[in-house]
Simulated assay, not measured.
Amino acid sequence: MTSKHLIEYENANSRVRAVYDDIKQTRQVADVNNFWKCLAAHPDNLERTWQSLKHIMAPGALDALTKELIYVAVSVTNNCTYCIASHTASARKAGMTDEMFGELQAVIGMANETNRLATGYRVPVDDAFLQ
């Protein structure tokens, strides 16, 4: 499905509008972003994804900024341009500075490099790490 299938609020059915309204209220935004508009073509997927994301990203043992930084890191690793942009914006809103962003990118790069090395060399896991 391509971006030409975005479902705008005024064209959405009541089920999709209810999810859009929840997103707007939860995130305190005037409109939902294109990710949700695209998923709206499949309301089951829209509802399930929104409920899961809302639950996972809600306050918990990790603060909002930490969760957004993790989301950016995974998005960079998965090469998802959309999620990188979306969650970088959310991380900035939650307090991420330019210096933090630079360090985050360094950590992502290093983790990917050492992960590939450990995988390629098939390094056995140390007993001390298995506790």
Rank of each mutant, 00 (worst) to 15 (best):
K54S: 15
K54C: 13
I56Y: 12
M57C: 04
M57H: 11
M57R: 12
P59N: 15
P59S: 15
A61Q: 11
A61R: 13
L62D: 03
D63F: 11
D63G: 15
A64R: 15
L65H: 08
L65W: 10
T66M: 10
T66E: 03
T66R: 10
K67P: 00
E68F: 03
E68M: 10
L69P: 00
I70Y: 02
Y71N: 15
Y71F: 12
A73R: 03
V74G: 10
N78I: 08
N79L: 14
N79D: 07
N79Y: 13
C80F: 11
Y82M: 07
C83A: 14
A85D: 08
H87S: 02
H87K: 04
H87C: 02
A89C: 04
A89E: 09
S90P: 00
S90N: 13
R92Y: 03
K93V: 05
G95E: 02
G95N: 05
G95W: 06
M96C: 06
T97F: 07
E99T: 13
E99Y: 06
M100G: 08
F101I: 00
F101Y: 14
E103W: 10
E103R: 09
E103L: 10
L104Q: 03
Q105C: 14
A106L: 12
V107F: 13
V107H: 08
I108W: 03
I108E: 01
G109E: 04
G109R: 07
G109T: 08
N112D: 11
N115S: 13
N115W: 10
N115A: 14
N115M: 09
L117A: 11
L117K: 09
A118S: 13
T119H: 11
G120D: 06
Y121W: 14
Y121T: 12
Y121H: 10
R122K: 15
V123R: 12
